[in-house]
Amino acid sequence: MSLFSIIISLIHILLIIVPVLLSVAFITLGERKALGYMQARKGPTLVGPYGLLQPIADGVKLFIKEPIKPSSAASWLFLATPILALTIALILWVPMTFPHQFSSINLSLIFILTLSSLAVYTILGSGWASNSKYALLGAIRAVAQTISYEVSLGLTILCIIVLAGNFNLTSIYESQTYSWFILTCAPVSIMWYISTLAETNRSPFDLAEGESELVSGFNVEYAGGPFALFFLAEYSNIIFMNALSTILLLGGGSPLEILGWPQTILVALKITFLSFVFLWVRASYPRYRYDQLMHLAWKTFLPLSLGLLTFIAAIPIALDFLPPY
């Protein structure tokens, strides 16, 4: 491989990672602004025009704050898990279609499922390595919640790939030219959206954080730079999940696709809308109770998605419109 092609792919990588990190920075500002206006106050306004430079100030503040490693913590794991968390969150963006992608992986949905399962280890590792009760309890809660909802996420993905006939995000994108999967799998897509809320530990499922009883959950003992890495990874995962919902359910750039217009702006608008609904949900709903959360995952979503998978897989066979392979 020549130096030239390496430089080209480095530029391509930067063109993905820099916008991701920037949008993570601005979604934190957007969250504070949206929550502020929903509670009849203004949110950050002082740093820069309309408070636009607030996330940069926050980032600089976090990186010049003193990081603390508790004396009883397991040192290597404690230092490695924030790095691993952000690395996984960035690598997840490799197969994402806007509709152009960095790398066209044929089994891109399996790639995504695998990496998002790996993200559980960073939570568990950081909670265990902190050697603090709050962190351990928060980590156990977060892991149990994440893996419970991963089952219904997986079954939803199965419904979609049965209808699209492929694991490739590009072909899923293309098969929604005439009808979005949010219509085709209407009940499943509602469950998918709720599961993404739970999977990213967002409110109303933010029991891992639980300020009143666990202070901050698995990252209590982290401060400064390492905490910033966890923070970036968390918000990157939120945007990623919404991008995935856009591609899987909202058809990517679907209405513009028929006209042959550039679709990237439409994809971005849909991702922004879904992320805004995440913030809206946070402003509107109170937190779930833990047993209700588990009840929802195992007694409602799992049986429903098992049944709907059978039903949805049967329809194209019965009506003879199986996807081309």
């Binding site: 006939g165 098969s175 009808s179 085709t184 209407a186 199986l322 996807p323």
Partner: peptide, 18 residues
């Protein structure tokens, strides 16, 4: 209703693609 509409569209597009 949403599933019916969606499946009709999907049937059209899948047959066209095949």
């Amino acid at each position: 209703g949403a599933m019916t509409i969606g499946m009709i569209g999907l049937a059209y597009s899948n047959r066209l693609r095949s």
